[in-house]
Design a protein around this nucleic acid. Sequence first.
DNA 1: CTGAAAGCGCTAACAA
DNA 2: TTGTTAGCGCTTTCAG
Lengths: 336, 336
Amino acid sequence: MTKKKVSIEDVAKRAKVSITTVSRVINNVSTVSDKNRIKVEEAIAALKFKPNVSAQRLARGINNAIGLVMPGYPGIFHSYYAVELIRGIGHACEAARMDMVFHITDGNNPINSNNVDGIIFADIIENRKQVEAALATGTPALIINNQVEDLNVSYIAVDNTAGGATVAEYLTGFGHKRIATITGKLSTQAGAQRYDGFKAYLDQHNEGIRDEYVIEGDYSRRSARQAAEQLLELNERPTAIFIASDEMALEAITVFMENGLRVPEDISVIGFDDNPACLFGPVALTTVRQPLFQMAEEAVKTIVGIISQKVKTEVKTVLLPELVVRETCCPPKNRA
Amino acid sequence: MTKKKVSIEDVAKRAKVSITTVSRVINNVSTVSDKNRIKVEEAIAALKFKPNVSAQRLARGINNAIGLVMPGYPGIFHSYYAVELIRGIGHACEAARMDMVFHITDGNNPINSNNVDGIIFADIIENRKQVEAALATGTPALIINNQVEDLNVSYIAVDNTAGGATVAEYLTGFGHKRIATITGKLSTQAGAQRYDGFKAYLDQHNEGIRDEYVIEGDYSRRSARQAAEQLLELNERPTAIFIASDEMALEAITVFMENGLRVPEDISVIGFDDNPACLFGPVALTTVRQPLFQMAEEAVKTIVGIISQKVKTEVKTVLLPELVVRETCCPPKNRA
DNA sequence: CTGAAAGCGCTAACAA
DNA sequence: TTGTTAGCGCTTTCAG
């Protein structure tokens, strides 16, 4: 009933070889005679031996772990965005046989960079200092979805500006004039860029965007509901609306329908994310896909490269989001 | 640029004391003179020293980590249930200053019980063997939400049978006769118990439940949509329906509304979970709350007790779920 | 109250 | 191809 500890030494004894040989077969490095290898493998199996990871890490001088630090906003685990990132990073870490140590930060309490070989920062908002601190100690670091140009640090991000512009182009292409938006948090770079790209296009190709057509959301359903209701009260209702996340878009659509509007006949809606959970709503949502999962995977590949010194200089990657046309957008009705 | 390593020895040198003394202040054990303590603390601060966790673990012979193993069904991260558990366990681990190593299992590839001091199994389905293996090596283990009576193992679970019965009682209390249900996965104990409790009550107090009124779902929105549509096609539509998760309930309500039904006037709906994300739908959902987060916290407290030998024998805890009345249930209309 | 010294389990030169 | 040996950074007796 007590926890017995099988060590490499026990294996060595049973197989009648040195612990070095055992170590070698564990790590299958250099050459071990087949005869010994088999003996060792048998002993390992018989004893159910599992290496002590702490000892390995200590001896190797590496942690075999990468840290993921994320801001700890409430509901983070209910955000498609955050969860996809976590999934992707977890997945890639597993493939790289690395631990992922997940660290939710409030901006202070920094991660112990001593226990990880590198750190991935997702959406630095208030924790720029942490990034700088990591860089200062020479800890490999990488930032997801924030294009920081004034620091010698790698990042991998989605081109949210282009994404916003794509939406604007698509909507104006239908002939929409009264175009509104429910933005994401404008204090995040992603949210701001999405809006900026959208607005910039409209300024150039439409006739700008009215102030009353711009409402800031915070990615929550609740904020989307409020915003949608607010939009509905306007004298001149918009005929199309860009909503900065699929989940918000879905909630807005629900509000519209509750009020007797049809989507897209009465109002076109386009989201952002390509959240598969939003595929089974009342109508299939037109949206913009960001390759979150792949971005996360790419992030760990990159940082692993940095850790292993394969990559010498910062790598700054920008991925293009992609329009996904489904059923929630159409030309405006001709009774404006 | 290269990663410098500050060790306990550097601190000792700078503070002009032995490494033992440094170790003592790090762990604030036994007594250290104020004079020395201050010197050491200064040195630690000046050097930005952080203990090497692997070395600590190795020396102490403990891992300071608890493992969480969950079945790796697709969409796990989008499940309110799973995510609440993860959150709660993560939170409690942080409080207990333990790492949480998260292990998604496919039923095989067991967790390396060598790297954790104890293992929490959430929803063992096909991985009973893993639990037995852990038990066999004397690794402290605990199971969440599965009442396994035939193993000497601790568990903490919600009384799903009682939950199902509560729902049945509530619905029949309104005078409903045509009561349907969209169940969870019946292959999980929780799903089965929920249904069993529900059905048992109906058998005793109503007049049982018709076969055509029972549809098995799998917690996905898609399955809920299908089930709801199927129910709508029946000659005699049910007047009330118990749906085994809030998310499914929300999807079903959407389907009902799309078909011109009013909730609850035309059809009463009650969910299960008390998922806050379902608060902002078209109507506030009546549901049953399971204390997921607290259950998770309790789980780590318990296993920490087991690990530290404070707890000698298995502890089997069953929590009662609680009815949360909101707006989606009312008596049936009198035109049956 | 303090320090010397013996490991914790493993890896990695270095020899053989 | 194999084994010897010196650590990795820290905790913890055990003397002092």
